[in-house]
Design a protein around this nucleic acid. Structure first.
Lengths: 195, 195
DNA sequence: CGCGACGTTGATTTGCCTCAACGATTGTGG
DNA sequence: CCACAATCGTTGAGGCAAATCAACGTCGCG
């Protein structure tokens, strides 16, 4: 059976759980393996799972009307990924999630999350904090995009995602920064020469 | 005394309130008038108020390191405005809020909101939904910025903010779209000739 | 081995910015 | 209530950041 301890550790760090609560989590979260390139969520579907990444790496992205991919977020070990809007409003998602590596997640369905809230209000608070944190990182993402050049965004990426730098291809990084792979290449080139 | 009915109406539409709950709201929300150009929140401060706009119009914006203003959101009658991240994490805000017109708001302080949660858990849900909705609109904002040209963003603005179109100057709209006033002027010019 | 994905480099184009100048409107102090 | 300043929208000329298109070498993988 898959090890749930990364998830229990995560919860316990926020608010310590009782044995009974740990049991609830153990029963309601299901492990699932996604293969590299496999969809976790495809646009048009309703996002029905909260995903906690145990190992591997996922990306959340939008495809614009020219067919270009814009990556909103990468998620690796010990973080969450879902389309919060689609999940809570039970509406069709405009976003896609797929796996950049073989990825193991622990996931809870919408119905089971509602059940979890009813059984134990403590999780109300845990997930409220989780959504607030998602809001904050989304806001950072927006502010960065709005008010920085591609070069500044690249530096910022290297800081926030330094642990992922060598796991993600430059093409993916470019799609995250909102520039072409060619332009990112030129940026890196300029970097290497300067300092 | 200022009329609280727009706020009570807003809550009642989400979840009907009892008389006692309405009384709580009446006691904890305070009216405040902001004059045109007055700050509601200034960067560096902690956002300590949830604001519900009764009349007038506010803007939420960031100033980048070149001194350029980037408007994240306009808020007029019957909507909320605050820096959610700063408010919940009790951290210094990078954002500013000020008034584009004389604006009447009903506001509740952080401490009073916590008190409201304790007195009546129903508001836990109401404000959870409120934050979820804020998340969704922020995500829309990001996707639009990431995946559209200035022209497409302008069209989208005209649709979502059609009621505000003639209340907001073009310079403000340009700062919202992320273009210079000159360029917006050229866009409009091109528009007028085409169809 | 061969094919497709990836990163690089060059030449050209384009979307948007900058700077500057000008009327029209708004606001303000004398 | 007028005069002057400040703000706002428009237009033109020129510039730059980043995209596009195209070509080429290198890998990793089936």
């Amino acid at each position: 059976m898959t090890n749930l301890s990364p998830l229990l550790d995560y919860f316990n760090k926020l608010i310590p759980l009782t044995d009974q609560e740990e049991l609830l989590v153990t029963n309601l979260f299901k492990p699932r393996l996604y293969r590299k390139r496999q969809y976790v969520l495809q646009e048009g579907d309703v996002c029905n799972q909260f995903n906690f990444v145990v190992s591997g790496c996922l990306r959340l992205y939008k495809i614009d009307n020219k067919g270009t991919i814009h990556i909103i977020q990468f998620t690796a070990e010990n973080w969450w990924l879902m389309d919060i809007g689609s999940f809570h409003q039970r509406s069709a998602s405009e976003l896609n999630i797929d796996a950049l590596e073989d990825t193991m997640v622990l996931q809870i369905s919408y119905d089971n999350l509602i059940y979890l809230y009813l059984q134990c209000p403590k999780f109300d608070r845990i997930f409220r904090v989780l959504v607030e944190n998602s809001f904050v990182s989304l806001q950072k993402r927006l502010l960065l995009n709005i008010s920085s050049t591609a070069e500044e965004r690249y530096h910022s990426f290297l800081q926030t995602y330094s642990h992922l730098d060598n796991r993600i291809s430059q093409a993916q990084i470019a799609a995250f920064l909102g520039v072409t792979p060619e332009f990112l290449s030129r940026l890196r080139n300029k970097q290497a020469k300067k300092p």
